[in-house]
Design a protein around this nucleic acid. Structure first.
Lengths: 328, 328
DNA sequence: TCTGATTATGAAAACGATTTCATGAATTCG
DNA sequence: CGAATTCATGAAATCGTTTTCATAATCAGA
């Protein structure tokens, strides 16, 4: 492996000059520049990034936290982030927290040990106080999820509005008995706000909710199956159900179909996200502008890294959009 | 930021001893060990990984190539790989090639500049000769995709068998006019072998194929829609269609349903992968043991890194499984 | 022509760890 | 008891860059 020293020797110059050429610093004559370039080529030289990282004190790498990459919402988020990061010369390290507090904390070492320049969180399990001390090691940006106590840039949508929009739609369709089927992580502000928006829509319309119409811990298609089973066994059943993701909605729709129910006549269902899956299953859904929040979060991160000073909170208020299909 | 020097000073010892404690080397008395540990704690010290990388000449990071992380097949692969890597103390850098030759080549610099210890390829666009020269910089392991000229470990399934299995199933159901709808990348051995297996099954049964029953460049649900459109406009239409992924199969199924066709009576459809989507849409499909190949590939990679010598080719012959549902 | 800025280059320090080598103390062994 | 191991520690070299500092040469302006 050729080093900068080898190049210098071959070109008959000093390390310094070679370094200048590599980093495009001024004050190098065309003549020497040519010599260096040629030597680099002949030796097939390429700078060692560990050495560069050490000296420069930066890694050009960003860690992204997601619960699981197979969740389409998060893989979409990551796809856009990676694209955006690559454009700016940054790499992404993928951290799957699996909704586990400990996993989440473990990955924090990446920042502390200077393996990454910054952290983007798309989901939060731990209390913010766990993250706080790490801020001195590098910027943290929150995307999608949010926390009141987090004094960092957070790019997120007003989920109260989102769920209100979806629920209002159900109400407008004439349903008065509406179920609620979502993840509901205690630590998740998204969860909380979705519920607030849901209840607000009900309240505004003067509609009652029953405790047994809440179905929690639903993330996947499988969970949707299970939710339907519980729902179908109730004596007093909801006519419609609001869900936290298209996966869950799809699971419910499928289970309902298999049970011989008609959608939406026997049960109306609304999803969330507008994944390809929603189109496939003809699900009405609340669309989130994933591309936009992912891009903005990544841009804020790169900005924070390059400015070397933490940024402040930030709300991105983007419109949700209701995509009306045949499930409601 | 505290350095190892600071810890040494505080503990009244040398850097060497501190390093020994950190790396759990023998020949340190309990007494000093305690002193060091305490000093580290008090200073909130943690080793700088850039420095360590430089000295150790290894990064504990692995790059994984995928076309797009939103493709469920690949996100599943990556999920398992990340989990496995984390277990062994390695991180994953996500590289989305977007099926672009140039993107793929760009990411190769990661290996050359020592930003990662090794590369796992799950899809290959470029000719193997492009990768060959990089082997001197670190191990490369191929997973899922494969190439005859690649003299590296490749964990893959015999796709000829897989598509044969699926096609045979269609034939056994009595269909004699069978369409073929897949991605078909020129550079992809998977594509080629799938086609070989498909044709072999037809051949073994003495069944004819028509040129117009081939539909290529189909990867997504959307592509499935498009394929159905073309298919439905044919004068002589296939009775069944073999697809390269559950997404495509789902797209065709949905489009067929929307057009008022009955599945499988008017058109039988078989998917590939057995994603949750397949269960959802009641698609018969050929299951691939994704978890197993992902795990094996990652294990081979870690082995190669730690053994510091390249491994040889490797075929993993695992059984495909036919999951029979109502679409055939 | 002298002064001060600008241009061009290299020697050496710095980044923060790990590893090699040297050395002395303690222990084992014949 | 002397020799050979083993244990315990630290000084200094090393990994491969970038950056600072010093210096010489060239150029512009008075």
């Amino acid at each position: 492996m050729a080093t900068i020293q080898d190049v210098a020797k071959k070109a008959g110059l000093s390390r310094t000059t070679v370094s200048r050429v590599i980093n495009e610093h001024p004050y190098v004559t065309e003549e020497k520049k040519r010599l260096v370039t040629q030597a680099m080529q002949e030796l097939n030289y390429v700078p060692n990034s560990s050495a560069r990282r050490l000296r420069r004190q930066q890694t050009e790498t960003i860690a992204v936290y997601v619960p699981r990459i197979t969740n389409p919402f998060f893989s979409h988020l990551v796809e856009v982030m990676e694209k955006e990061a690559a454009k700016k010369g940054y790499q992404l390290i993928l951290c799957q927290t699996r909704y586990k507090k400990e996993q989440e904390r473990n990955f924090l070492e990446l920042l502390k040990t200077k393996q990454v320049d910054g952290l983007i969180l798309t989901s939060i399990e731990n209390d913010w106080s766990e993250f706080e001390p790490y801020l001195s090691f590098g910027p943290i940006v929150v995307c999608n999820e949010y926390s009141d106590s987090a004094q960092v840039p957070s790019v997120y949508l007003n989920q109260i509005e989102g769920s209100y929009l979806g629920t209002k739609h159900l109400i407008d369709q004439g349903y008065t008995k509406i179920g609620y089927c979502t993840g509901n992580h205690k630590s998740s502000r998204v969860s909380k706000d979705r519920k607030i928006g849901f209840l607000k829509a009900l309240d505004d319309a003067g509609i009652m909710m029953k405790e047994e119409w809440f179905f929690y811990n639903a993330y996947s298609v499988q969970d949707g199956f299970a939710a339907f089973k519980k729902l179908s066994e109730l004596a007093d059943r909801p006519q419609a159900v609001f869900t936290g993701s298209d996966e869950v909605a799809a699971g419910i729709a499928k289970a309902a179909f298999d049970a011989g129910w008609r959608v939406p006549e026997d049960l109306a269902i609304i999803g969330f996200d507008n994944q390809p899956l929603a189109a496939l299953m003809d699900l009405t859904t609340v669309e989130q502008p994933i591309d936009t929040i992912a891009k903005q979060a990544m841009n804020l991160m790169v900005e924070a890294i390059q400015a070397k000073k933490p940024l402040r909170r930030k709300e991105v208020i983007l419109p949700f959009q209701l995509i009306k299909r045949s499930s409601t």
